[in-house]
């Protein structure tokens, strides 16, 4: 009973913070008739599934199905799918702000479909971000962007969360982008490095002047060194007070975001 009260309280809190977040973002979204979000809590871990299709890219069946698929991720952190049709910021800023506004420094991952910037962005925070690193975020969004380009947003999001789940359970995902890029770069770098190696191994250094002088017999003497003062110039030294010198304390404009760990990566579509 006590557990149930706790869960209801958590959901209420989430709805309150979500509503607050919506009022912040509603202005930018320019759309007051936003669909209801799907919220589900994993009672064992306390993590949530949050799915809000503001850009109305998914059917309600697809939303329900996706929310089910996202539940597995709540074993590790919150799982969020957000679609937007208007965004005056970058996709990465929006994703980060949105997640922190709702969940704060809590483990979780957010998949954003930004129709305004035509960009997919995967943001992860805290524990999950150690597994879903920025590199993996880039890889996952690269793996699924083609579905978004074909306007198959359900498959796009479904595949993205599937790959997140795969990584969180310690398995591997395909990384064609990484391997293609690295293979091409490796070939170019190898060709250049090999050229310098060939040059280095083929060349012989010329003898230096020192080596030449060491190989000959030579003698050197400089005797009777004399120095005679002929002139002296004297001038008043400029003191430190006369020099335009300003000192000021360091005022670093450093702000800390709480020291949390996060990662992110995206792809246009």
């Amino acid at each position: 009973m006590h557990k149930q009260i706790k869960a209801i309280a958590a959901i209420l809190m989430l709805i309150v913070s979500f509503s607050f977040s919506m009022t912040v973002h509603a202005e930018s979204d320019k759309d007051s008739s936003l669909p209801e979000p799907i919220i589900w809590e994993n009672s064992e871990t306390g993590y949530f599934v949050l799915l809000q299709d503001d850009a109305q890219l998914l059917t309600s069946e697809e939303e329900t199905q996706l929310a089910k698929e996202m539940r597995n991720i709540t074993a590790y952190g919150n799982a969020v799918l957000k679609t937007i049709s208007y965004n005056s910021y970058s996709a990465s800023s929006y994703a980060e702000d949105f997640y922190y506004d709702i969940f704060g420094q809590s483990s979780g991952t957010l998949f954003l479909i930004d129709m305004d910037n035509r960009e997919l962005y995967l943001f992860s925070s805290e524990d999950i971000s150690y597994t879903i690193t920025s590199s993996y975020s880039n890889t996952i969004t690269d793996n699924v962007y083609r579905y978004a380009s074909k306007e198959d947003y359900y498959t796009c999001a479904s595949k993205a969360f599937e790959q997140i789940q795969t990584l969180l359970t310690g398995r591997r995902i395909a990384q064609p982008m990484k391997y293609i890029c690295n293979a091409l770069l490796a070939l170019i770098l190898a060709a250049l490095i090999n050229y310098f190696v060939a040059m280095r191994t083929a060349s012989s250094a010329k003898a230096s002047s020192r080596e030449i002088l060491n190989a000959i017999s030579s003698q050197f003497a400089f005797t009777n060194p004399q120095k005679k003062l002929t002139k002296q110039n004297k001038s008043v030294r400029a003191t430190s007070s006369s020099v335009g010198h300003s000192s000021g304390g360091f005022s670093g404009g450093h702000s800390s975001g709480g020291g949390g760990h996060s990662s992110g990566g995206g792809h246009r579509f």
């Binding site: 003698q219 050197f220 003497a221 400089f222 005797t223 009777n224 060194p225 004399q226 120095k227 005679k228 003062l229 002929t230 002139k231 002296q232 110039n233 004297k234 001038s235 008043v236 030294r237």
Partner: peptide, 14 residues
């Protein structure tokens, strides 16, 4: 004060 002294230098090289 800052001073600068100028010298004539000489010696015998062999």
């Amino acid at each position: 004060y800052d001073y600068t002294d100028y010298y004539d230098l000489s010696g015998e090289v062999n």
